[in-house]
């Protein structure tokens, strides 16, 4: 293909969009709104995942011996750690000595911490292990394995974990279902729009064939038109999401400093690292496939 022919195709692609501005606008709008929703749900899903990850790290399992603290030997602690090491899905094992446990309690009691003074010599708190899982969904499995170890007590947040997992799964399912439905609607609308565009140009294609245009010569301008529409249709929601994301996260951080510990957000950069290519691929994909399918019907002159 000669360069001037490519220039011609590109020029025709842009002209096609301009001369069919209403249809092009409809196509861009369809892709843009589809990708806008994909983008919004992507932002929500990524951040919910991120928040859950952060929460997962703080909702661990605590394991300790039920015997009197004095009777627990170093070897016993070491043996328990070895046993814990053998269980799958445990990511981190932190040993907390009675002294550390007491200090932690004091911290949590805050201004009443002084009430715990004097317990150092008669520490009622046992040595314990805090376990963090690689994925909170395996909690049940790990707990059942821990239950087989004798003489220990297991403390964990069962109800809270259940709610977290449920919420996590719900968000994933809802967003996936919505993206599939909206993607389907998007493709259908796009197909309709392009079909209409091609229908408007049916005569043009017919004439081109009589003049001796090859099929690819006829196809290219439409495909380039699809690419341009796809690119514009994916960039528009990206710009909107960029600004609103910055605005909303800043707003939440500013107004509600106290929930910052729970409401942690991915940075705009982190979001767009993946959202940009996803949007472009989906947008251009819908544009090109839509054009190609619709053109095929009318090339059988």
């Amino acid at each position: 293909m000669k360069i001037r022919t490519m220039k011609y195709f590109a020029g025709q692609g842009f002209r096609g969009i301009w001369r069919n501005r209403l249809m092009s606008l409809a196509s861009i709008g369809t892709i843009a709104s589809c990708l806008m929703i994909v983008g919004i749900f992507y932002c929500i899903a990524v951040n919910v995942d991120y928040m859950l990850e952060t929460l997962e790290e703080t909702t661990g399992i605590t394991v300790f011996y039920t015997e009197e603290t004095e009777e627990i030997s170093e070897e016993k602690i070491q043996a328990l750690e070895d046993q814990l090491n053998r269980i799958d899905h445990i990511e981190k094992i932190i040993y907390i000595s009675p002294e550390e446990a007491l200090n932690k309690e004091k911290e949590e009691w805050g201004e009443y911490g002084s009430l715990l003074e004097g317990l150092e010599n008669d520490n009622p708190l046992p040595p314990s292990f805090e376990l963090t899982l690689d994925d909170i969904r395996y909690q049940k499995e790990v707990i059942s394995q821990l239950n087989q170890i004798n003489g220990i007590e297991i403390r964990y947040l069962e109800e809270e974990t259940k709610i977290l997992i449920g919420f996590n799964n719900m968000i994933r399912i809802v967003s996936l279902v919505l993206i599939v439905i909206l993607g389907f609607i998007g493709v259908m609308l796009m197909d309709n729009t392009i079909r209409l565009t091609v229908y408007i140009r049916k005569n043009e294609i017919n004439i081109m064939k009589y003049i001796g245009a090859t099929d690819w010569f006829i196809r290219w301008p439409f495909i380039i038109e699809g690419i341009i529409i796809g690119v514009i249709g994916s960039i528009l929601p990206l710009i909107v999401i960029w600004f609103s994301y910055n605005f909303i996260t800043e707003l939440i951080y500013e107004r509600n400093t106290f929930i910052q510990k729970i409401l942690v957000f991915r940075t705009t950069g982190e979001i767009f690292n993946l959202l940009t290519p996803i949007s472009l691929v989906i947008g251009i994909g819908i544009g090109v496939i839509g054009s190609a399918i619709s053109i095929r019907r009318y090339l059988k002159v």
Binding site: N203, E204, I207, Y210, D215
Partner: peptide, 23 residues
């Protein structure tokens, strides 16, 4: 099918309804 466009380049065609590209 691929060769048809090249045959048509050797044949100028004129129709009753002109068939010009309106845009």
């Amino acid at each position: 099918k691929k060769e048809i466009p090249f045959l048509r380049r050797k044949l100028g065609v004129v129709f009753q309804d002109f068939r010009l590209l309106p845009n």
